[in-house]
Amino acid sequence: MNVIECNGLTKMQGNHTALDQLSFSIKEHTITGLIGRNGAGKTTLLKILAGHWKETSGEVTVFSKRPFHNLFVSVNSIYIDDQLAFSTTMTLSEILNEASRFYPNWDKQLSERLFNYFSFHENQKHDQLSKGRKSTFHMIIGIASRCALTLLDEPTTGMDAAVRKDFYRALLRDYLDHPRTMILSSHHLEEMEDLLENVLLIQNGRKYLHLPMDELKEYGIGVTGRTEMVRQWIHNKKVIYVKEVGKNATYAVLKREGLPLEKAKQLGMELTPVSASDICIYLTNQTKGGIDDVFK
């Protein structure tokens, strides 16, 4: 069953096309990583799915319903980012208490345990928390609410490495006990590789890739060799990234599918796997060169 279906989803913000003819679907009980550069349209997509923003054209359904201002979608989904607004008069424990009243599946015990584990104090104020602490607190709400659709927009903003690790672990543990559909947007893909089942890569509001994690890991192949040879070999092939490394040597990333890899080996080129994180970065590079080209 598909929890989310988008068909030609387009969102205009003024003259800027934030989402451009986006079509994809997300199955029930999966964790999807929404990957893209800054400004790719990740937040826009999540806000539309959460029902906060309205699509300009195209079709979008969540639980087979149009999400915009839909109460059914709202009660079965939660949108978490680092900018959640709370009353300045309420303490953290009061906020959790209110949240528990809104979400029918709320696990009070879990929220209290996480609250204590991350050493929050009952009487602390939300606006006194640092950026990372805010993210951690929001994450508690995101996990404990146990919404059928959990949308986490850059959930780890400001968290330190240890907390990030704990967060991914907590998310996975609770997901295994209580399967649900999750979308995490991030640009730290390498940390989430073990967590994600699918990756939705978007660029300039367009879908670039929507693949299972395993396939993404196999998507590209790195080729290193003498510059002329590499240049010649990659001619007429699907090149994702090219970079000169050292003297008279070039590193190129190509789409693995259909490549005569044995021949490359015979030609003396070194083949290396490309991590999912790197492939996403290479795929979404605006130019084939990278930042170094700026300084040429």
Binding site: H69, L71, V75, A85, F86, A99, F102
Partner: peptide, 15 residues
Amino acid sequence: TYTETDYVFVANHLT
């Protein structure tokens, strides 16, 4: 400031 706090939890424009 005030409307945003509504939409943290379950809400639509009617509620």
